[in-house]
């Protein structure tokens, strides 16, 4: 089976500083991967590079996503190919209706795939279904995009978008940060509902807590721009106990 995402020897610099120093990672459909690491290890950089944000220069390596050279695609085409990034800090866009925005996004993706725009009533049905699933208040989805949302509401809204857009790969960039335990459960529940054999999830997090609810098949430890250790779920638990320091020593040896 060809992997859904294949990253080989990825080197990335930002403002002349090398942040990622040779990442190798393969994700297959149906898998959940977690990347853990201390602050400044390059976790968010990896998610931005995958999504195609400006200012991240790939100096070496390749990324193949669903058979396509990801690095040749524009950010919007990456999204249309099925990459979804749940942002750590979702941006506010005042005056833009949350639902209208989502419909525009969905239709842009559909158009790319040669599909007709979604019928208004069908879309509404989908929205209601997912809203219920995620326990989102009705007024939240009719407000301006993230405008005046609490931290928790913003994160829930990201997962709401995920469930509607239904991408091939969901990247969750520290989605758990700033969430209370109830919101964390809602978010995890949404991700688990989304996840199936045909898609994959890449969870980026500091803490093992989220992984109690979104159970990963693989855990990778990112440190100073390199994946220094990979394992199964137990690695996250181990890490929780020993802290990152134990692994730092491992790499220097």
């Amino acid at each position: 089976m060809t992997p859904l995402l294949s990253i080989k020897n990825l080197h990335v610099t930002v403002d002349g500083n090398e942040i990622l120093k040779g990442i190798d990672l393969e994700i297959n459909k149906g898998e959940i991967h977690a990347i853990m690491g201390p602050n400044g290890s390059g976790k968010s950089t990896l998610s931005y590079v995958l999504a195609g944000k400006d200012g991240y220069e790939v100096t070496e390596g390749e990324i193949i996503f669903n058979g396509k050279n990801l690095l040749e695609l524009s950010p919007e085409d990456r999204a249309r190919e099925g990459i979804f990034l749940a942002f750590q800090y979702p941006v506010e866009i005042p005056g833009v209706n949350n639902i209208q925005f989502l419909r525009t996004a969905l239709n842009s993706i559909r158009q790319y795939k040669g599909l007709e725009p979604i019928d208004a009533s069908e879309f509404l049905k989908l929205v209601k279904e997912k809203q219920k699933l995620l326990d989102l208040p009705a007024n939240l989805i009719n407000r301006s995009l993230n405008d005046g949302f609490s931290g928790g509401e913003k994160k829930k809204n990201e997962i709401f978008q995920l469930s509607i857009l239904n991408p091939l790969l969901a990247i969750l960039d520290e989605t758990d940060s700033g969430l209370d335990i109830d919101a964390l459960k809602v978010v995890a529940n949404g991700v688990n509902h989304y996840h199936n054999k045909e898609n994959a999830v890449l969870v980026i997090t500091h803490y093992q807590r989220l992984l109690d609810y979104i159970v990963p098949d693989f855990v990778h430890i990112l440190y100073k721009g390199k994946i220094i250790k990979s394992g199964d779920k137990s690695l996250a638990l181990e890490l929780e106990k020993s802290g990152y320091d134990a692994y730092k020593v491992e790499t220097t040896n």
């Binding site: 999504a51 195609g52 944000k53 400006d54 524009s74 950010p75 919007e76 990456r78 999204a79 249309r80 979804f84 990034l85 942002f87 979702p90 941006v91 866009i93 833009v96 925005f101 989502l102 525009t104 996004a105 969905l106 842009s108 993706i109 790319y112 978008q161 857009l165």
Partner: peptide, 18 residues
């Protein structure tokens, strides 16, 4: 804001107009 829109599959021109 532009990158957020684009990450959701919306091209830059449309994003500006939104």
């Amino acid at each position: 804001q532009l990158f957020y829109c684009m990450q959701r599959g919306i091209d830059k021109e449309k994003a500006v107009s939104i």
